[in-house]
Structure formats: structure tokens, C-alpha cells
Design a protein around this nucleic acid. Structure first.
Lengths: 353, 353
DNA sequence: TGCACTTGCACAATCGATGGTGCAAGAACT
DNA sequence: AGTTCTTGCACCATCGATTGTGCAAGTGCA
């Protein structure tokens, strides 16, 4: 009967019996340390043959328990459903796999409590390293990791207590603001009260971007009215409401927009839905994020692409390196002109038609 | 010194000593089975207090080893970097968390070998269930799961040997094709040789969609030339080349396009990049996938949104239900008119400004 | 007082792999 | 032949939690 075939998954003990060797010998052969343990070549071959035959696979929980690490490497994202973060996941996976470890990607919803709980859960599985992306409370997560002796690193949003690899938000926002302004010709240049920033929150990235936004406006346009920033967090709906409020107050949208992230950009889309396309035909938008579809909207959208590959690479370098005092590393982002469809992490996969 | 503070993470044995109870009692208290084991309320409180005090957390590898399951639930995606799949991940996470388990999301690059290897790795960690999304070789993965006695289910692309929950691709493609055709008025209706399908591959979804495409063209336009389908897999670059080849041959793009997925749509974007926007002003596109940014391109893009929430819900229902003969369940997708910015899984998160 | 229950917990085996240590048999050498 | 190495492996404790079982002390009742 099929029920009898319900294989219990061969263990080293099974192979031990079958091969006539001890479990420890079998273990050594199967995990590759057998030469160091002076196991005879022929013994090894016998065991490897049996393993193959019986489809042996290591029980990684048992190994993890013994070694007190698991081979799992964690990536904690704010959310999955976003091109920036999902390309982060994609890139991360590639790196982890190429080191023979197993990537575990989870999201924590930008909720400090959830972030800590998530870290704790991962720690309970004895993950080997944790990459903390865009955490609302990086230092809170740090405490949890620290207490468990877990190597970790911040990405995208910096913490004070562990290394951080982040985008050069100031420079990126400076470039973006400048590009928005320069987009307008000299005959009808942009006025300071025509450029607004939507999105942003009280996090490091937003603060830097807002600072650069202000500074660049002042430098290039000579002035910068007080009310130029409409904070609306990282929520499409709140951003939508901010646009609606603005529209109610002014009877129109600004001439130009600096939008803090693709998530806020979705708020603009929601505002656009149901309104005539002509309403947006003169609009110029800068968005601090890159999304290929966002780049081809019916008005110019200048985007900033953060260098995910470089960030992840640097993060691995640091997390593997010797511990030093926490430092923040800036990775230069790239200004992307409207109507650009760039390659992404998927392009490294082999093309299959 | 800090080095001495390197806490070894309290175990039930530590708490056992501290509380004067046996490890098994501590274990029972901490995992909630203590009433069943007739542990005194006061004993339990003492232990819980100590656990709190010493920041005890269960070593889930040890538990997993003993129980031979881990509390991990796997989601295997083709890729992360895509709104369809990442919204799948987002939705999945919500469901898994609400059951007190830990989601593990990994991708397998649409590579049959990678798919099996990935499943094997996850199995080695004793995951409790596996959700297989868009697998190139679902039945291959099935074998691996079957051998390990792992509950699993196919999503998006069906397999023959396990339950499958998929989008009603035929009906979706029928709606989409019809919507594309109806988009053209009666004075200058679309001709059969003006509507082409790009993308698709030899998988179940593509076959269904292509069949519906053909049938609907024939039904509504009376004819359907042979060469109406340009297979280009799931790769932006191959799709780009398909567009270039088409353009070379015909000196123009088709009047209307059925694009098989957002990934192929990115191929169109790549084709658009660097070419004048006017070239696309008359184009009408239907895309079998939904991406909010894709919905606002400078030409009408009719999209199909697959009901991710319903698919995941159904999948959980099935995977938890009693085993029966493998069956495929169709979930109705939704036709999305151009310029629609819909809510997604992120909107369930609490908005933070 | 005697017997049957109930209460409250301890004991010990177990999950599967790892790695330090010990030791017999054979080789090499004097 | 006696001593010292080397080879090749087995033994066993261990990682931390779970769980079936056993049993002493206490309770209730005739």
C-alpha cells in the first residue's frame, strides 16, 4: 500500500546500519569533513553511494541545532509589494544562493513592534545573518540582534548601532530637484511656489531628501516658501488625500512635484484615476524611486534609481568583515530620465522563451 | 566586559534550575500545554515570570527537530521583482502570520532544477506546507514534496498531481481580447490582422490565453490570421527583440496588442524607450496582469487583475482540507479599465504618516 | 483505617547531526 | 622483538525542546 511507502526520510543512522559504519563516520562523509577525519576513500564512496540510493538529505534543523546556526540568511523588508523592495529581495537572493545558503525574505510592515517580533522569530531559527531594510526602528531591532549575538546590518534606513548602507539621499534629492527645475525652459521658468514635495515622514531618508529639496530650491529658484512639503508617509491613500486637499485649496495641482517614493506616487495615480488626463498634461514629476512603468506616464517623470546591487554587495562585505564601530555608507543613486526602461535583477536570469 | 555579557540565550534548563522545576515542566509551561499536564497555576506563573525576566525565547530549531515540523510555511515564487508575484508574497505573509506561523518566501527563477532544489532545501528545514507559485515544472516539485510527505499546492500554474488554484485564464483572456476589440469604434473597427499577442510560452496559462485570444478574435472579427502570436516567454529582452523584429518586418507596430504579462509589457517599454512618444499614441494595449503604473501609460492599457487574495485564500482552504484527488480550481480575474489605481495588499496595513 | 482517585510533577527517551576523544590494528623503524 | 607512528574509525556527550509514563503525596469516601 501507499501508506507503507510513506518514507521516513533516511537519516545517518539508517545509512550507518546499511553501510556498517558508525553514525559519526556517515555524518563526516556526508558533510564533507571526512578527509579531515581520515576516513578511507572507499568507505566514503560506499556511504555516498548509499546516500544517493536512498535519497538522503541532511536534516538541517538537526544540524542547525547542533551547530547553533542554520544556514539561513534573513532579509527583513518593510513590504514586498513594491519594485524597490522586491528588486532588493531578488538581488539578495542571488547573493545568498551563490554562497550556498538559504535566503529567507520576510516583511515587517514598517511597524517597530512587528520588526522586533520578526527579528526575534528569525533568531529563534538561528539564522546566521540579518539584513534589515528600511526599518522604522533599526536600533530596536539592533538590540534584539545584539542580545542574540546575531550579525546584522541596516540597509536603506540607517541605525546608530550597526553598520548602515544607504542611498545618498541628499545627493539624489538634489539631483532630482535640480532636474525638475531645469526641465522648465527659460521663457517660463518654474517659480518657487510651483514646486511641491509630497510624501515623506520623519525618517532619515525623508529628512535628507527634504533638506536637499529645500536647499536646491533656494539655490536655483532663489526662494522656498514654507509650505512646500506635504508629508504623507508611506501610504498611497494618505498621499491621495494630500493631493485632494491641495487641489481643494488651490483649485489645481502644482506645476511640478517631487514625490518621495513610488508608494506616494501611487497616491498620485489614485488622484489621477477618474480625472481627465488633460489635467496632468503639463505636469512635471520627479520621483525618488524607479519603476519602469512609472517612467512612461503621460507626463515627464524623472526618477531616481537607487543602486540596489551596490548596496547589497556593500552590505555583504560589511557583515562579513571584522566588526568595527558602526558607520554609515552612502551609495550613489542614479538620475533616470523620463521614458527609460532599465534592466533589473531579472535580466541576470537566463532568458527562457 | 561586554564579552562576558555575550548571553547564551536562556534555555528551559536554565529556567529549570532557577525555578526548581524540571525541564519538562518548564517546557510545558512555556509552550502552553501546562494545563493539560496539570501543572499548578502558581508554578506556571513563577516560570513565566522567570522566562520574562531572562528574555527566554524558544529555540525553534530544537522544537522543530523534536516535532519534525518547523512552523515555517514556504512560498516558492518564480521571481520577486514583479507586482503580481510580490503582491502574492504580501498576501501570503498576512495569512501565514495570522496563523502564528512564519512565512518563508523564496524564488526559483522558473528553472525546473532550481525549483526542485529549492523545494528540497525547504523540506530539509521541515517546513510545514509549501505553496508553489507559477512553477515551470509543478509535478517535478510534487515528487519531491510527496517523497517527504509535505503538503503542497500549486498556484497560478497547475500541476496534475496536487491541487491547483489558478486564474481563469481563458475567461480572462476572452474578456481582455473582447475589450481590446470593442475599444475601437465602428467607423474604423479593428481588423483581424491588426491585433497581435506578444509573450507567452508553452505553459498552461499561456496556452489558455492564446486559445481564448484566437477564439475571441475569430468570434468578433470573423477571422484570425496564422501569425498573430509572437511567443517571447517571460523575458523583457526577448519580448523587446520580438517587437523589434516585428517593427523591422512591418515598418510599424500593430494597432492593438495583447500582452501576456507585465514582464512582457516591460519588453514593450524597452521598445518605447528612445523612440518618439507619438509612435504609440494610437496604440491600444491589453495586458494580462495588473500594475498600477502600467494602467496610466500614454495610451489605453486594459489590464487583467488576477484575484490574488481569493487565490491564496482558496489555496489555504485546500491545503488544510482533507486530501482528495488533485483538482484544479479556477478563480475569476477582473478586467481593469485604463487609468485605474486600485488598492492592493498594502492598503490593509495600517496607514502611517 | 483502608482503598481508590486525583493532583502535580519528575524522569528519561527521543528528534538527527556534530565533533572531541580514544583506541585497536597495522606500518615503520631501531 | 619492542617501540613509536599512522591510519581508520567508533564512542559518546551534546544542541534544546517535547512527550509518554510513572509515581509520591494528598483527597475523598466507605
Amino acid at each position: 500500500m501507499d501508506q507503507q511507502v510513506k518514507k521516513k526520510k533516511a537519516t545517518i543512522y539508517d545509512l550507518s546500519v546499511l553501510s556498517g559504519s558508525s553514525p559519526s563516520t556517515v555524518s563526516a562523509v556526508l558533510n564533507g569533513t571526512w578527509r579531515k577525519r581520515r576516513i578511507k576513500e572507499s568507505t566514503a564512496q560506499t556511504i555516498l553511494g548509499l546516500a544517493e540510493l536512498h535519497q538522503y538529505t541532511t536534516n538541517l534543523q538537526a544540524r542547525g541545532l547542533r551547530r547553533s546556526r542554520s544556514g539561513l540568511v534573513g532579509l527583513m523588508l518593510p513590504v514586498h509589494d513594491n519594485r524597490y523592495f522586491s528588486s532588493m529581495a531578488q538581488t539578495f537572493e542571488g547573493h545568498v544562493r551563490s554562497r550556498g545558503q538559504c535566503p529567507v525574505v520576510v516583511s515587517a510592515s514598517r511597524d517597530p513592534q512587528e520588526e522586533r517580533r520578526t527579528a526575534e522569530t528569525l533568531i529563534s531559527y538561528s539564522i546566521d545573518q540579518l539584513f534589515i531594510v528600511g526599518a522604522t526602528d533599526p536600533d530596536g531591532v539592533h538590540e534584539v540582534c545584539e542580545a542574540a549575538g546575531l550579525r546584522h546590518i541596516n540597509i536603506d534606513l540607517p541605525g546608530a548601532k550597526a553598520h548602515s548602507v544607504i542611498s545618498d539621499n541628499y545627493e539624489g534629492a538634489r539631483m532630482l530637484t535640480e532636474a525638475i527645475i531645469r526641465r522648465f525652459g527659460n521663457d517660463d521658468p518654474l517659480r518657487p511656489d510651483q514646486l511641491f514635495l509630497f510624501g515623506g515622514r520623519n525618517d532619515h531618508a525623508s529628512r535628507e531628501r527634504i533638506a536637499a529639496f529645500h536647499a536646491t530650491k533656494k539655490a536655483l529658484l532663489g526662494a522656498d516658501p514654507e509650505d512646500g512639503v506635504q508629508s504623507s508617509g508611506y501610504s498611497p491613500d494618505i498621499t491621495l488625500r494630500a493631493f485632494e486637499a491641495f487641489y481643494q485649496r488651490h483649485g489645481k495641482l502644482p506645476r511640478a512635484l517631487f514625490i518621495n517614493s513610488s508608494i506616494n506616487m501611487e497616491g498620485l495615480l489614485r488622484f489621477m484615476a477618474g480625472r481627465p488626463a488633460e489635467m496632468f498634461s503639463e505636469l512635471v514629476v520627479g520621483c525618488y524611486d524607479y519603476d519602469p512603468f512609472g517612467s512612461f506616464l503621460p507626463f515627464p517623470v524623472i526618477m531616481v534609481r537607487q543602486n540596489v546591487e551596490a548596496m547589497i554587495t556593500k552590505a555583504f562585505e560589511l557583515i562579513d568583515g571584522p566588526p568595527t564601530v558602526p558607520q554609515t555608507f552612502l551609495i550613489a543613486p542614479e538620475l533616470i530620465q523620463p521614458r527609460s526602461a532599465l534592466k533589473g535583477p531579472l535580466d541576470t536570469l537566463k532568458d527562457i522563451a
